[in-house]
Design a protein around this nucleic acid. Sequence first.
DNA 1: AATTGAAACAACCGCATGGCG
DNA 2: GCGCCATGCGGTTGTTTCAAT
Length: 250
Amino acid sequence: MVKSLSLDKNGIRKGAWSEEEDDKLRAYIHRYGHWNWGLLPKFAGLSRSGKSCRLRWMNYLRPNIKHGNFTTEEDNLIVELRKKLGNKWAAIAAKLPGRSDNEIKNRWNTHLKKRAHDEDIVLELEHLGSMEPDQANLKENKDLECEKDRAMINLASESLSSSSSSCWLGLGGAVFGDVPSQTSSYQLADDFWTESFLEDITSSVDSMPSPYLVDNLISGSSCQDMTVVDEFSWSMLDSCSEHNSEFFNC
DNA sequence: AATTGAAACAACCGCATGGCG
DNA sequence: GCGCCATGCGGTTGTTTCAAT
C-alpha cells in the first residue's frame, strides 16, 4: 500500500520509505530534534525533501502515534467533530491523541463519509415517514420541516457529542492519562523512547553526521553560510539540552 | 486460477500562513 | 509594507490489497 520508489531530477527520493530511512530519521530527530526541516534531510543522510521527512515524522514515526483500527468512540468523535469543524483535519486530530490529521482524513474519506451520509438519509426518511401525506406535498411545509430536520440532526449530534466525549475521556484517561487540550504539542516523557529502541539506534546515530560537525553537506553553500548554520545549530542544540521536549512538539 | 473493481492508506502537491529581515 | 522562507494544512494521487465474479 505504498508508492513505489522513484528519484526526481534532483536525486530526491520519492515514494515508500524504507526501514533504513525510517531509522535514520527517527534516530536523527531523537538526537537533534527537527530544528529545520529543510536542512534536516542532508544532516540526517536522507535523500528526501524536508517536506517528505516532516510528513513521515508527523504521520508515522512520531512518538505516541497510533496505527491500526479506529475504535467506535474515535469514529463517533470524528463524525461529530467534522460536523462542528468541517474539514479542519488538524483541529480534529488535536482532539484525538495519537492520530494524525492525515490518518483521520483518510478514515473520513474511506469509511465515515459514507456512513454519515447514510445516517442523514435515514433520519430524513424517518421524518418524512411520520408526516401526513398532504403535508408532504406542500412545498412550504416541506421547507419548514427540512429546517426542523436540520435542527433535530444538530440536536442529535450535540447529544452524541456529550455522550461520546465522556466515553472518549474515559478511554483517554485510561490509556493516555489526561487528554491534552492542545495535543499538537506533545510532551516527551523521559521513557518515551524505549530502551530497546535506544540500543538499536545507538550505532547508527553515532555514525550520523551532526549538524555542527558537517561542513560540506549543503551544496553550493559558502564557508560564511556554514558559519551561520553552525552557530545556529549550536544554539539550537544548547536549547535542546535545556528544553528537550520542545524539540518534539508536533 | 485469473481478472477486475473497490477499498485502504501512504505519500505528494499546491496553497495559505506566519515569522523575520 | 514588502518579499522571502519555513512550516502547516487540506486535497489529491498512486499503489497495494482484497473480495467478488
